[in-house]
């Protein structure tokens, strides 16, 4: 009996500990408008070059991009998944409320995690692109321990993409009285529908294929397409 009571108390304690740990999420306060390097992995030069690029990107696109680095998510929210924590920060700092469009680049050094939190509006079609940017631009530098360069490259690519694509987004949103995302989808469909008229006649491929079949296949079938040049050095 005593044992059972002890067990019950023990379980209750454990449970309450678990719940309080959950509630013990520390939200760091932003110290800078663009970069909050809580992990201290960026040099002053890194910070100034990244900041100036973020400032330019925000001027050009109207979107605010925020960079946050932490040593480990466990320091702020034990047991929390880095991506969830990034989302918590994104909401707690009310990033979207500032400009309507916001992106949070979150780097957790010990967890070896990078995530880009996007504003709700863009999430759908930017996700893959962001993954590409993280994989190609940021991760290779992070693996070398060069966080400054990784973040710089990531931000540069991101702002290039945003500058190019805000124009299309804005046009779509302006002319169609529905959500920008849906409007953009329609625009893409329109472009796809209109394109074949310009060049790719659907019939062309089939006739080319038939012609290819009629030809006696002396060489490998691969030889009947494309072109190029070759040489040695």
């Amino acid at each position: 009996m005593r044992k059972t009571v002890f067990l019950m108390i023990f379980t209750a304690l454990l449970l309450s500990a678990a719940f309080t740990a959950r509630a013990d999420v520390i939200i760091p306060q932003p110290a800078d408008e663009y970069i909050n390097d809580f992990a201290g992995v960026l040099t002053a030069t890194d910070k100034s070059s990244i900041s100036s690029m973020l400032r330019q990107a925000s001027l050009k696109t109207g979107a605010s991009i925020e960079v946050v680095t932490v040593n480990s998510v466990a320091d702020y929210a034990p047991g929390e998944d880095p991506e969830n924590f990034a989302l918590t920060l994104f909401k707690a700092w009310k990033l979207e409320e500032k400009t309507g469009k916001a992106i949070l680049i979150f780097v957790s050094i010990k967890d070896r995690q990078v995530s880009m939190e996007l504003g709700s509006a863009k999430q759908g079609f930017y996700d893959n692109l962001m993954r590409k940017v993280v994989k190609a631009r940021m991760v290779p530098n992070f693996k070398e321990g060069d966080y400054g360069r990784g973040i710089y490259e990531g931000v540069r690519t991101l702002s290039q993409i945003l500058t190019k694509q805000t124009d299309i987004m804005d046009i779509a949103a302006r002319y169609l009285p529905i959500g920008g995302a849906f409007a953009f989808l329609l625009l893409v469909i329109l472009i796809l529908v209109l394109l074949p008229k310009k060049g790719n006649k659907p019939g062309q491929d089939k006739t080319a294929e038939k012609a290819a079949k009629k030809q006696p296949q002396k060489k490998e079938t691969q030889d009947i397409f494309g072109g190029g040049a070759a040489g040695s050095w």
């Binding site: 060049g199 790719n200 072109g227 040049a229 070759a230 040489g231 040695s232």
Partner: peptide, 28 residues
């Protein structure tokens, strides 16, 4: 020590054969 640049049908139709030669020479 070989190099080649190769493009699919449509790009090949748009560019002149000299274009690929130019690319090849520049790279080599």
């Amino acid at each position: 020590r070989r190099f080649a640049v190769f493009g699919d049908d449509e790009i090949n139709k748009k560019v002149s054969p000299e274009f690929w030669e130019t690319v090849k020479k520049a790279v080599i």
